[in-house]
């Protein structure tokens, strides 16, 4: 099961979706095709914005760091932050904003507690570089890594309820020791 499929399963048919950091709009395109869920993407990169337009996906070129002032309270059913959390400077306000504009939020991120990452730091003594985290430490868009435990602690602090969690490694669900054996985590949360 891919991350895309996980997220799609959590989006109700016809739900209004906001995809933050939507890239080329592939997820929104998929949600429209499979769930008839209309939505908007937010993206800052020029080339990706153009790719969204080519893919006929509604895209708004805005900086997530500036908040979500363009969106009214509870104007969406699901706000998605797919593998973007780690690239945000100020996570707390953005997560709060997501659950202001939307009933539910889906957040996915590469798990920094994954054993391969741990080994690279603990034994090799360098920052992890992997398929999920392909960047060198000095040349990465990622600024705030976290583990499952860290994210769940932040949800608790913000008063968010975790409705569902899926942990994946190589496209396969992980249930045993997810914070160690999972390379990617996806959460469905509400306020």
């Amino acid at each position: 099961m891919t991350e895309l499929e996980t997220i799609a399963r959590w989006v109700a048919p016809g739900a209004r979706v906001l995809d933050l950091g939507c890239g080329d709009g592939r997820l929104l395109q998929h949600l429209w095709k499979t769930r008839q869920a209309p939505g908007y993407g937010v993206e800052i990169d020029d080339a990706k914005v153009t790719a969204c337009l080519k893919n006929d996906v509604n895209v708004l070129q805005m900086d997530l760091e500036d908040g979500l002032a363009a969106f009214a309270d509870r104007s969406f059913d699901t706000a998605i932050l797919s593998e973007t959390l780690q690239a945000i400077h100020r996570q707390e306000p953005l997560l709060r904003e997501m659950l202001r504009v939307s009933r539910e939020a889906i957040v996915s991120f590469p798990n920094f507690g994954y054993w391969r990452a741990r080994i690279q730091i603990a034994l090799a003594g360098h920052m992890p570089v992997s398929k999920e985290l392909p960047y060198q430490w000095y040349d990465t868009p990622n600024v705030h890594h976290c583990t499952l435990i860290d994210f769940e602690a932040l949800c608790a602090k913000l008063g968010f309820r975790v409705l569902e969690r899926v942990v994946l490694t190589g496209g396969k669900p992980v249930s045993l020791l997810p914070n160690l054996l999972g390379s990617l985590a996806a959460y469905r949360v509400s306020a």
Partner: peptide
Amino acid sequence: REIVRALLDNRRIVSYLD
């Protein structure tokens, strides 16, 4: 962005480039 906000409030199909 004020225009975009008004369009979003009305659930219009809109894309915005800055």
